[in-house]
Nucleic acid binder design. Structure first.
Length: 493
RNA sequence: GGGCCCUUCGUCUAUCGGUUAGGACGCCAGAUUUUCAAUCUGGAAAGACGGGUUCGAUUCCCGUAGGGCCUGCCA
């Protein structure tokens, strides 16, 4: 994959970031994709990114990227790289530079301080042991294990010379409501929400705080993410309120499950995007497939990215988790390959060959591939298959038949090829005329066309599957075709 | 344990209370055919369950079952 720039920008000034609003009075849309760099970009993350991207592009808004690298132990530059590469491969361009969440720690701490000063947060000196003991006791007594800090109502002036975390002073009564674009109106009784930690005892921000501050500072208008964050939306709403900030629109999309309905695991679909690239899927097909998973536009199944942008509507995303279906992806991939313009497809194939096999094409090969492309692409569902179709151009003599192909070349077939080769010596070398010639030959010999064409195919490319034998002959030319036929005749002799 | 969410053919989905419940992938049969693929025709295939509300529920409400998410000084 293409190498990405790893420089992540940390924004420190709030004002410089709040460009999400345009003059017209109506707030323009700003979305973001905010992965944590602890692994590759899997299919679920890719779809979340796609939905954010589609939503922004549909509304003519902006799509931002933020790397949530506050977990220093698990975050790696390699993972960040893999995510950027994956997004680039999928064709999801983000606006501006990717923001490093870690680099904004000071700003997060500042927000915590604001809440502390406003009395919306408090210092909690409870130790891990005390908290664990509390939970164990609560559980034993059949009470909810939500930790209730004894420091919540302590005099804010009491400052101890001991480690502390900063906790949000969440409301104990009433309810917190999230108006979710996908899930609808969801309410939580506030007693079921605890005083979450904002700042750890080492002064670093937690995810819950960092997300809120960053989304606010980046001017995010729509938070579109996996529905595993649904409960977090309630907690974060509390933080927005404590800070006196406007709460963005939430849209929690269902997660993708494996073919067996269980959560996606490495066993089935949870491969990195690069794995699908290696399987030869074209990005256009991947976008189509992912967009259609959980979202629909009438009966439209096959569509371009431009159409997806035009049609996309976040509130038409379904609530139920969808299963990953490789067959369906393959089918869509085949349709997109067939629909692509030959030069575009050639470029895609060339990039694939270079990336996966380190294979560069020569000018002559490029020309031949382009000529053969119509016949090749209608037989391929993936770039892997397309490359295999092109082996009669990209391979070199002699074309040794593989197992299945060798069986086609029995004694009779070789004798037939010898005879046919003589016939073809002076034939006019275009696909239609070659076909007519071979048909005449087959008829004269009392053979079906298949009995003649199949051995020819094997001689030309060493396989039983390929584009039309006549097209292949035309593309590689008379001399090369006859030479390949003689290779097989000679090999048998 | 508590909170919250989900449930239409095997899979992805359509359905603004009234439809022979539609489409697509996959599958089966046939047509076409130089292989493969594509294409064409036809077919099997669904409202988790139980109650309500209603003249009428897949659609609205409640419950049950099953599945998922959260319940961390992870994100």
């Amino acid at each position: 994959m293409v190498s990405a720039q790893l420089r992540l920008k940390g924004h420190t000034s709030r004002t410089g970031l709040r460009k999400g609003y345009c003059m017209g009075g109506e707030a323009s849309v700003v979305t973001r994709f905010a992965p944590s760099p602890t692994g590759f970009l899997h299919i679920g993350g890719a779809r979340t990114a796609l939905f954010n991207w589609l939503h922004a592009r549909h509304h003519g808004g902006r799509f931002l990227l933020r790397i949530e690298d506050t977990d220093r132990a698990r975050s790696t530059p390699e993972a960040t790289q893999a995510i950027l590469d994956g997004l680039r491969w999928l064709g999801l361009d983000w606006d501006g530079e990717a923001v490093s969440q870690f680099s904004r720690a000071e700003r997060h701490a500042e927000a915590a301080k604001m809440m502390l000063e406003a009395g919306a947060a408090y210092r909690c000196y409870a130790t891990q042991e005390e908290i664990e003991a509390f939970r164990a006791e609560a559980k034993a007594a059949g009470r909810p294990p939500l930790f209730v800090s004894p420091w919540r109502d302590a005099d804010p002036a009491t400052v101890r010379d001991a480690p502390f975390v900063v906790r949000l002073k969440a409301p104990r009564t009433g309810e917190t409501v999230v108006e979710d674009l996908v899930q609808g109106r969801i309410a939580w009784a506030n007693e079921t929400l605890d005083d979450l930690v904002l700042l750890r005892s080492d002064g670093t921000p937690t995810y819950m705080l960092a997300v809120v501050v960053d989304d606010h500072d980046m001017g995010i208008t729509h938070v579109i993410r996996g529905d595993d964050h649904l409960t977090n939306a309630a907690r974060q709403t509390l933080i927005y309120r404590a800070l006196g900030w406007e709460v963005p629109q939430f849209a929690h999309i269902p997660l993708i499950h494996g073919p067996d309905g269980a959560k996606l695991s490495k066993r089935h679909g949870a491969l990195g995007l690069e794995a699908y690239a290696a399987m030869g899927f074209v990005p256009e097909a991947m976008r189509n497939y992912l967009a259609r998973l959980g979202w629909s536009h009438g009966d439209a199944e096959f569509f371009t990215t431009e159409q997806a942008i035009e049609w996309f509507s976040i509130d038409k995303v379904g609530k139920a988790p969808a299963r990953f279906d490789l067959k369906r992806l393959e089918n869509l991939s085949g349709q997109h390959i067939r629909a692509m313009a030959d030069p575009d497809l050639l470029r895609e194939l060339e990039a694939f060959a270079a990336r996966e096999h380190g294979r560069q094409f020569t000018d002559a090969e490029r020309e031949a591939l382009l000529k053969a492309m119509p016949g090749m692409k209608e037989r391929s569902k993936t770039l892997v298959e397309l490359l295999e179709m092109g082996r009669f151009i990209l391979g070199k003599r002699p074309f040794e038949p593989d197992g299945k192909a060798a069986k086609v070349l029995d004694e009779g077939a070789v004798a037939m090829l010898a005879k046919l080769t003589e016939h073809l010596q002076d034939a006019s070398w275009t696909a239609p005329e070659l076909e007519a010639e071979v048909r005449r030959f087959a008829e004269a010999e009392g053979l079906s066309l298949g009995k003649v064409a199949q051995p020819v195919r094997v001689a030309l490319c060493g396989r039983t599957v390929s584009p039309s034998v006549f097209e292949m002959m035309e593309v590689i030319g008379r001399d090369e075709s006859l030479a390949r036929l003689r290779d097989r005749i000679g090999a048998a002799a």
